[in-house]
Amino acid sequence: MIRLYASEMSGNAHKVRMALAFLGLEWDEQATDAAARSTDAFLALNPMGQIPVYAEGDFTLRDSQAILAYLAARHRPGDWDGHTPEERGAITVWLSHAANEIFNGPALLRAERLFGWSVDTARAAAVADRILPVVEAHLAGADWLVGNRPTIADLAASPYLALAPDGGIDLEQWPAIGAWTRRIAALPNFPAMPGWPAEGGA
């Protein structure tokens, strides 16, 4: 049985939750709060003390982008992680944006408001101001970030953009991003989370 160490409000954990749900896999979700992440038992799984962590048998893997890459290679090779070198390169660009600009901009603004994180608000807002126009322009001419179907690029980049209003970002100003996150939320088996409901009863 797959175990996912996560928390309900974590966008990074939700990336993996979406992948598992879309793949039709069953998993046991272990609610892992800040106190649990500081225990010796958890640090043995992830010495960084962060969620999500994926565990299956003796195999464990940390970092949401790495877990998505693993799940794609194991269960949806090509379709989710790129059929060509060009697609694989483009997908990697979005994985990098998800871990860097999207996290250090919209995600940190949300964490400050919802969880009281100590954040350099001006810097996070400046990072958000750089990445949001890039994503908006890209999606203005495409339904998905890479190719003609959802890939792990979409799974990696979407949660903290869908949840950007929690950080004071008005998605009405970014209609292509809003439409894209609603397309993802309308996919079969989409797992809703607080701040990102399913669309159309999916």
Rank of each mutant, 00 (worst) to 15 (best):
residue 140 A to D: 11
residue 197 P to K: 02
residue 40 D to Q: 14
residue 23 L to N: 04
residue 124 A to T: 09
residue 62 R to E: 02
residue 95 L to N: 02
residue 43 L to H: 08
residue 107 A to C: 13
residue 31 A to W: 12
residue 67 I to K: 00
residue 192 A to T: 08
residue 126 A to Y: 05
residue 32 T to V: 09
residue 172 E to W: 05
residue 51 I to E: 01
residue 145 L to V: 05
residue 163 L to T: 06
residue 79 D to N: 02
residue 12 N to A: 14
residue 149 R to A: 15
residue 132 L to T: 05
residue 46 N to S: 14
residue 40 D to W: 04
residue 77 P to M: 12
residue 107 A to I: 04
residue 180 W to R: 02
residue 106 P to W: 04
residue 92 T to E: 11
residue 96 S to T: 15
residue 94 W to L: 06
residue 55 A to V: 15
residue 111 A to Y: 13
residue 131 I to Q: 02
residue 106 P to N: 11
residue 63 D to K: 02
residue 124 A to I: 09
residue 2 I to K: 05
residue 85 P to G: 12
residue 133 P to A: 10
residue 155 L to I: 12
residue 125 A to G: 14
residue 180 W to F: 10
residue 97 H to L: 14
residue 67 I to A: 03
residue 136 E to H: 12
residue 186 A to C: 03
residue 6 A to P: 02
residue 42 F to G: 06
residue 164 A to K: 04
residue 72 A to G: 08
residue 188 P to R: 06
residue 61 L to K: 03
residue 133 P to F: 12
residue 177 I to N: 03
residue 123 R to W: 13
residue 190 F to E: 01
residue 195 G to N: 10
residue 26 E to S: 15
residue 135 V to W: 00
residue 147 G to R: 07
residue 127 V to C: 06
residue 202 A to P: 03
residue 187 L to W: 09
residue 134 V to G: 02
residue 176 A to V: 08
residue 75 H to K: 03
residue 132 L to I: 08
residue 35 A to T: 14
residue 200 G to K: 01
residue 111 A to W: 07
residue 162 A to E: 00
residue 140 A to E: 14
residue 141 G to D: 11
residue 145 L to F: 07
residue 164 A to P: 04
residue 139 L to A: 09
residue 74 R to S: 12
residue 44 A to N: 10
residue 187 L to M: 14
residue 77 P to I: 13
residue 43 L to N: 10
residue 139 L to C: 09
residue 61 L to M: 14
residue 8 E to R: 13
residue 154 D to C: 08
residue 90 A to C: 09
residue 10 S to Y: 00
residue 189 N to L: 09
residue 115 F to I: 12
residue 43 L to T: 08
residue 120 D to K: 07
residue 42 F to M: 09
residue 59 F to R: 10
residue 198 A to I: 04
residue 67 I to Q: 02
residue 50 Q to A: 06
residue 193 M to G: 00
residue 130 R to F: 12
residue 183 R to S: 04
residue 47 P to E: 13
residue 24 G to V: 10
residue 193 M to D: 00
residue 174 W to R: 05
residue 158 S to H: 01
residue 144 W to E: 03
residue 146 V to N: 01
residue 2 I to T: 15
